[in-house]
Design a protein around this nucleic acid. Structure first.
Ligand SMILES: [Mn+2]
Ligand SMILES: [Mn+2]
Ligand SMILES: [Mn+2]
Ligand SMILES: [Mn+2]
Lengths: 218, 218
DNA sequence: ATATAAATTTAGGTTAGTCTAAAAATAGTT
DNA sequence: AACTATTTTTAGACTAACCTAAATTTATAT
């Protein structure tokens, strides 16, 4: 039996460590989960005992294959639920995260498989993040930050890095959505802002915005 | 803030006490929640402190209006989720209860209202139990146990009392479903069994079955 | 290499929810 | 009314998950 809290720790280690490939520090977990480092130490010991994590004191944590599978399942559920809320229940992409944080812990194989089927086996969630398959595998796509595009190059918006409600609403307001085609018209060295063209309109965006939008080049 | 555990206790008090109208004993709650009477006493004190329950030692527990509203909301969510699983995700009526036990604790007004809309505002769950409305009100229907029907009277099956998987599967096997018309052909004094006609077939059912099927007479 | 700073762990406590065993109150029976 | 059985409560302990404060280890900078 795995508890909801354990699942959240494992998920954090997974996501902070690039889908379970890197070792993660105690403090980074504490920050992600809004808890204290001492609590993290306690939990990480337990996860190691249970076979979900590799841990040597002062050396950080990583996931075992078993831990990785658990994490991928939780992330799969989180993202499928987000897709469901947007596709079937009229939620907007800035409303779904907190509810998915709750729904990701519901235990039922059939439920998640039926949800997958109902949504016609989506590969990405409403924020453009990939949905792990039943085996926990993730299809890697070659996306880059808009900030990395040179002048006079084009890209299609495929995801957001910052998924905060305020950023998503900013994008909505300016009609920037997944699938939008964006051309970098010019870049400003002074403040790293850029002028882009989208929907046949030019607009200036800050460095912060450009650093939180994923595009597929070309 | 109300915890998942508190919600489960409140729901039990609600259901054992006929939708919050009766006082409930410590032992009955313990049995329903598969816990010990001493744990119930502790929790019931806390619920009283928080204003959800009325409690005097040795005298049993009842719900305050506030507690009743919380209970009705949880039951509403439980039953709407059960309906969703059957209507939209291909679950059978014997598979939904345990998952609904988890889903009933998800906190989101919008989620439950959208679910309600998606299902076109159902009044009953897959077992024939009424779904409380947003205000916590329940539409009372005049149903009776099949066991109470006299010989040569008819009824329409509108619900089950026992919602165990084994009973529901028994009903499936004999093609007894909500909406089925049932005629009591004869009753046997000896063992309280009865012969019924359903789908133009006669069959004998035990007293146990007759006492767990709700029908609407006539 | 030492000193200082930052990160991490340990020690000791708290709270929610549970349990067992014993005590107290209520209900049932002669 | 008195005894007995049942129900309920209290007392004391346990675990999971958290915290603060102090100790320890590792990293960084002279
Ligand atoms: Mn999310
Ligand atoms: Mn997402
Ligand atoms: Mn149910
Ligand atoms: Mn039901």
């Amino acid at each position: 039996m795995i508890t909801l809290t354990e699942e959240n720790y494992i998920k954090s280690i997974y996501q902070l460590g690039r889908y379970g490939t890197l070792t993660v520090s105690t403090n980074s977990i504490a920050e992600a989960l809004e808890t204290k480092a001492s609590s993290v130490t306690d939990m990480v010991k337990k996860l190691a005992e249970k076979g979900y994590a590799n841990y040597k004191r002062y050396q950080g944590v990583s996931l075992t294959p078993q831990g990785k599978k658990i994490a991928a399942d939780v992330v799969r559920k989180h993202r499928l639920w987000e897709a469901f809320l947007v596709e079937k229940l009229n939620f907007t992409w800035d409303e779904v995260h907190d509810i998915a944080e709750q729904l990701e812990h519901i235990k039922s194989e059939k439920l998640i498989n039926e949800l997958d089927k109902l949504l016609d086996y989506p590969t990405h969630d409403p924020h453009g993040d990939p949905i792990p398959d039943k085996n926990g595998d993730i299809k890697k796509t070659d996306k880059t930050l808009l900030f990395n595009l040179a002048e006079n190059t084009k890209g299609v918006c495929v995801g957001v890095k910052d998924t905060s409600s305020s950023f998503l609403k900013y994008l909505d307001k300016h009609k920037i959505a997944l699938g939008s085609e964006i051309t970098v018209v010019s870049r400003e060295d002074f403040d790293d802002s850029m002028v882009i063209e989208i929907n046949n309109l030019k607009m200036s965006i800050s460095q912060t915005v450009a650093n939180n939008l994923f595009v597929k080049e070309g």
